[in-house]
C-alpha cells in the first residue's frame, strides 16, 4: 500500500463532509473514486494533499503519517495533485509551467549568483524532460504560448503534464477529463495508463464508464462515506452503487 487513509473525519460547521473514510491504494495501479456531487471526493483529495486538515483519523504515505503536514511538505514526499477547475499559471508560458513543477530545480539565491553553472545545467536537464512530457502529451508545439491562451482541453493536458513533471510517487487527479470531449478524454486516460508502470494514480471522476475501462480498483463515495469498493466488474453490478447514482 503506497497510500492509506484511515478513519478520516472532516466536518464544516457541523456538516460532516467525510465520515469514517478508509481506503488503500496499491502501488502502480489506477484507483478510481466515484460518487455524486457533494459526496466528499474533492474533500478527500484536499485532505490527502494537506489543503484541509483532518478532524480525526490518519493519512499514511509510504508508511509515513502525513496528516499534519503542510501541502508543500506533502508534495515534497511525492504526492502531486491536480484541481477540478484546472489551475495552471496563466501568466507563464507552457514551458515555464512545466519547469515550475520540476522539483529538481531549487529556487536558491546562492546558486543564482554564485553557482550559475549548476543552475543552468539543471535548467537544461529540466527543459529536456519537459519537452519529452509535452511531446508525450502532444502539446509540445505550444511550449512558448502563454498558458491562458490554451483551450480547456489543452489546459487539462498541461496540468497532467505538470503533475508528471514533478515525478511523484502518486498523482491525485481531480476530474481530469471534466468538460473534455470523449476522444480527448480517452486519450488522457490512455496516457495515464502508459504512466502506470512508473507511478500510482488516484482519480476522482464523474464519468463512471471511463473509469470502468481504465481502473484497477474503484471506491464509491456517498454523503461523506465509502459505500462500496472493488474491481470495476464487481462495482458494475453492485446494487448500492446503482442506488447511489439513481437515487441521488
Amino acid at each position: 500500500m503506497i497510500l492509506q487513509v484511515q478513519d478520516v473525519e472532516k466536518s464544516f460547521g457541523g456538516i460532516k463532509a467525510l465520515e469514517g473514510v478508509s481506503l488503500g491504494v496499491e502501488e502502480n495501479t489506477i484507483v478510481g473514486l466515484i460518487g455524486p456531487n457533494g459526496s466528499g471526493k474533492t474533500t478527500l483529495i484536499n485532505v490527502i494533499s494537506g489543503f484541509l486538515k483532518v478532524d480525526t483519523g490518519r493519512v499514511y504515505f509510504e508508511g509515513k503519517d502525513i496528516s499534519s503536514l503542510l501541502p508543500f511538505e506533502i508534495a515534497r514526499l511525492g504526492i502531486c495533485r491536480t484541481f477540478q477547475l484546472t489551475r495552471i499559471f496563466r501568466g507563464l508560458t507552457v514551458l515555464e509551467n512545466m519547469l515550475i513543477s520540476s522539483n529538481m530545480q531549487k529556487e536558491g539565491l546562492w546558486q543564482l549568483f554564485f553557482n550559475r553553472k549548476k543552475m543552468i545545467l539543471q535548467e537544461k536537464v529540466d527543459e529536456r524532460a519537459a519537452y519529452e512530457i509535452l511531446e508525450f502529451l502532444e502539446i509540445n508545439h505550444l511550449k512558448h504560448e502563454y498558458a491562458h491562451s490554451l483551450s480547456g482541453g489543452q489546459q487539462k493536458l498541461l496540468s497532467l503534464g505538470m503533475a508528471l513533471m514533478a515525478d511523484p510517487g502518486i498523482v491525485l487527479l481531480d476530474e481530469p477529463v471534466a468538460g473534455v470531449n470523449p476522444t480527448l478524454a480517452n486519450k488522457i486516460f490512455e496516457k495515464v495508463k502508459l504512466e502506470k508502470k512508473k507511478r500510482t494514480f488516484l482519480v476522482v471522476e464523474h464519468n463512471i464508464d471511463i473509469l470502468m475501462d481504465f481502473c484497477d480498483m474503484i471506491y464509491v463515495m456517498n454523503k461523506g462515506k465509502i459505500v462500496a469498493s472493488g474491481k470495476p466488474e464487481e462495482i458494475q453490478g453492485n446494487e448500492t452503487v446503482i442506488d447511489v447514482y439513481l437515487g441521488g
Binding site: 508534495a75 502531486c80 543564482l112 505538470m162
Partner: peptide, 23 residues
Amino acid sequence: SPFGRTLKAIRDDEDAVQVFGKN
C-alpha cells in the same frame, strides 16, 4: 531565474505552487 519564475507563479495561484513542493 527559477526563483523569479516561482514568484510569478505565486502571483497567479499560490496554492497551486505548493502542489509542487514549493514553500
